[in-house]
Write a protein that binds this DNA or RNA. Structure first.
Lengths: 233, 233
DNA sequence: TATGGAACGATTGTTGACAATCCTACTGCC
DNA sequence: GGCAGTAGGATTGTCAACAATCGTTCCATA
């Protein structure tokens, strides 16, 4: 979808479990599965047109990521998004994105800032149309690009998981953002800090941005949405 | 092994793929599999006394972690430890451990410092006996405890992978440390910074510690140990 | 001698079936 | 009426067999 069109298939495809994992990750981020939902193997395998074997292998990847939790002889469930869970998620996000920013300052912060500003522009455009989903999409893109610009495979891989969880939150608590304008301003501030070649300012604004988000989300969703997940005694 | 003995088994065991993944992780960290080695399914399954199905599920977890790399229709291989790979690994480690330290300062840095000093004591003891493996073990324990004290499940999970990779490096390049005494001193310095309730000092010493390690390892292993891993044209 | 091609062996990828476990609903008994 | 016990259905856990692919080796040919 996102990559440029090819005339021929690459010689070696990605492994099947990897493709399955991607599909599941996208589905969870899109809100097709809500927090606490069980992922029935038989039905999912039918829908994907594959056997249960490769599906289970793909699901194990998401379990390792922490997106799914395993209950023996019961199945796999989408992780619950409790307030402390959200808080921990942003601890991890801050760790990764701050490190990414630091790496960027070791490469080409000017160029990075420009690219981030471009995304901010799209976000502003969507905000002017009051198209909240598109604003959220640009929000995700911004942070994804930020980490991508760090050129660190590990940071990117870890961040991918955290972004999926972020998408989950966005879909679970629709539009808890106060104003799209503030949202745009915060992101633009971060991008401009790169252009200004000011690592300390960038770091401070990133921390503030994360702090804002965790306060908004953790207080916005104090009660669990669905009591479907079994809680062991 | 590490946990206290139980008289009865817990009601719900950990999932089988999780156990398999743990065993493989330990084996890789112990050096049973070297960088670039292929993990043959049939033989491994025989050795573990299980079928290929659960084994493959467990291996997918390590693939998601980045410890194994998948080559379609060829199998799974232990990740190569190139210099840039080592560098990236320490970028990620620094990100996680610095964030962990920051979290600790939000909890009980005094107590954390004490606990870390205890580990440092064991390290010094091993160093006085010139027992390098034990020193390395204490080194790993130190960082594992550091992240554990952050009380962040995500940081702990991510860090677990990075520590396995660190163990790989330790086994691949035996004893590249200049002097065990310096090693002890560096760790003690970090622990003391916690006791001194000085976040900035702690952060600075953590960064310096990581910097030291990456320089030592990345320059110590410029050439790949085994040319066994197939490189796509 | 060097090169192209085919057959072989071994390993991975995938599937369907069987065994074990859990949850639910029903029945009988106190 | 409430509760222990039990049968049923459904889902997960595990396995062995089949299909597909890859690397190697050998042979024929220019």
């Amino acid at each position: 979808m996102t990559s440029s069109r090819r005339t021929i298939e690459p010689l070696v495809r990605e492994s099947t479990p990897g493709i399955i994992a991607d599909k599941l990750r996208t589905a969870i981020g899109r809100g097709d599965f809500k927090a606490g939902d069980q992922l029935g193997e038989a039905q999912l395998a039918r829908e994907l047109g594959i056997s249960r074997g490769p599906l289970r292998e793909g699901m194990q990847r998401l379990t390792q990521e922490g997106l799914l939790v395993s209950v023996r002889n019961r199945g796999l469930f989408v992780v619950e998004m409790t307030p402390e869970n959200v808080r921990d998620m942003y601890v991890a996000r801050a760790a990764i994105e701050r490190a990414a920013a630091e790496q960027i300052f070791g490469h080409d912060p000017q160029d990075a800032g420009d690219q981030l500003l471009a995304v901010t522009g799209q976000m502003a455009q969507a905000a002017s149309r009051e198209d909240d989903p598109k604003v959220s999409e640009a929000d995700i893109d911004f942070h994804q690009m930020l980490v991508s610009l760090s050129r660190s495979p590990r940071l990117v891989r870890i961040h991918q998981t955290l972004l999926t969880e972020t998408r989950m939150c966005i879909h679970a608590l629709e539009q808890t953002y106060r104003h799209s304008d503030d949202r745009v301003a915060e992101h633009r501030g971060i991008a401009e800090a790169f252009v200004a070649l000011d690592p300390a300012l960038t770091d401070a604004r990133l921390v503030a941005h994360m702090e804002d988000a965790v306060v908004r989300l953790a207080t916005g969703a104090p009660r669990r949405t669905t009591p479907s997940q079994p809680t062991p005694a």
